[in-house]
Design a protein around this nucleic acid. Structure first.
Lengths: 161, 161
DNA sequence: TCACTCCGTTTGCAATTGCAAGCAGCGCCC
DNA sequence: GGGCGCTGCTTGCAATTGCAAACGGAGTGA
């Protein structure tokens, strides 16, 4: 298995949901599943069927395949090459958008040249990182979003050791 | 109502199995499922879960995705987002960086690049369109990048190459 | 004819999914 | 203080999955 094994599909779903800043019930509504069941799925108490998974993916507006890969239901046989190639190949983006994404990606890569494993517990105050190649406005706009969500349960860290 | 849809997946499996010239029991053995259940799946009497589907795909040595598409568990118009998969698979990024990149990418996708012009006016309309997962600050900061016309607050030179 | 093997199918049941209803906690308004 | 709406979680329960066992049919050999 590759590294993106986040342990559990539920964790991934919850993470995606919180990123979308929607409640559990909202996602359940959009996905067409019951809220208690979604709760159990997110906490790993239930193993949802592919149909439910597909509906959740639609509710989250994410790729069903990504969800299946996370759930271990699809062999990650399709090597996603690399991010830049994928961005370049995406016909839904404008050239300007591609360039922005690539710039941001490269700046991220420069921040941690050799880091390989998950280190999402980064310092909450990246004030020391004033060496970003990104324009200050963008960085300033990214910081409040990346540091803490002033909404709901701010504890999105993985609680399991 | 369940007859036509699941019938297709069962027919597909049976077709693939017969092309491989193996018996139902053999495939069941290779796939690790019981033969009666496989029989019912092939005749459309049961709707197999994704796990079973995945095992059958392995037993048939075919793509799991092909089977999922047949089962209607993956939208046929899925491929556009390989970028997210690539970002997810990039082990050099921190989790937080992945989230930011994906959010930006998704916000780009939602801007509908082919839809005339981007309505970047000061009318966010939070209640009307809450699909944006990005905070308004971030979207506002990205728009001078995304739009080719840097009119207005063009105080920052873009670093396009 | 009997015995054996393989084929796909049917039957009954344990385990699981997925849901409706209800519960406790929190914030807001009257 | 009470009420309303929202958050997520727990609890039974119907419906379904998926399997072990058993069934009828076809082919082969003694």
């Amino acid at each position: 298995m590759a590294l993106p094994k986040v342990g559990s599909i539920g964790e991934y779903i919850r993470d995606q949901r919180q990123q979308a800043k929607i409640s559990l019930r909202q996602l359940a509504e959009q996905a067409g599943v019951s809220n208690p069941y979604l709760s159990q799925i997110e906490r790993g108490l239930r193993k949802p069927s592919a149909e439910i998974l597909n509906q959740i993916a639609k509710g989250l507006r994410i790729s069903s395949q990504a969800l299946y890969v996370q759930a271990g239901l699809i062999e990650d046989r399709e090597p996603p090459s690399d991010v830049i190639s994928a961005i370049r190949a995406d016909t839904h983006l404008t050239e300007r958008q591609r360039q922005v994404l690539i710039d941001i990606y490269e700046s991220f890569r420069k921040e941690r040249p050799g880091d390989g494993q998950t280190s999402q517990n980064a310092d909450p105050g990246p004030s020391a990182d004033d060496e970003h190649p990104l324009p200050p406005e963008l960085v300033a706009a990214l910081e409040p979003y990346a540091t803490s969500n002033g909404n709901g349960t701010a504890n999105q860290e993985t609680k399991e050791g």
